[in-house]
């Protein structure tokens, strides 16, 4: 029973975080800051939803597979973000920066 409630809380929180991330990619002004909003949905949102499902699954092969899905997302999402940001910077897309930013290059 307690586990059910916990998993519901996790699932709902994950869903809400996903929507917040979705709002973020529309509110932020440029590509680089949108990557941070997409980062919310890649990390904490995925973590919470998979944790909620894992609590429902209990100790089984399904839980192992959920952990594996999480691990793959955990390893691939920063790599994809880094590749995107790197490619964007090298193609000459300049980020909108704050005025008093220091040490900015190019």
């Amino acid at each position: 029973m307690i586990i059910d409630i916990l998993s519901w809380i996790c699932l709902l929180a994950g869903g809400v975080l996903g929507i917040i991330g979705g709002i973020g990619i529309h509110r932020f002004p440029d590509f680089y800051s949108r990557l941070h909003a997409a980062g919310i949905t890649d990390t904490l949102c995925a973590m919470l939803i998979l944790l909620g499902l894992g609590l429902q699954a209990g100790w089984s092969i399904a839980a192992f597979k959920l952990a594996l899905i999480f691990l793959f997302l955990f390893f691939t999402s920063p790599t994809a973000s880094h590749a995107l940001a790197n490619a964007a910077l090298h193609s000459g897309l300049t980020p909108k920066l704050d005025r008093d930013s220091r040490g900015a290059k190019s």
């Binding site: 996903g18 990619i25 699954a57």
Partner: peptide, 26 residues
Amino acid sequence: PTTYDRIAAVNMFGTKTVLLIAVLAF
């Protein structure tokens, strides 16, 4: 507006698809 925005959005869409499939499994 840029291509990279689109690719980042598609990446996010794909991550959500994974989660949706997992939820649908349950």
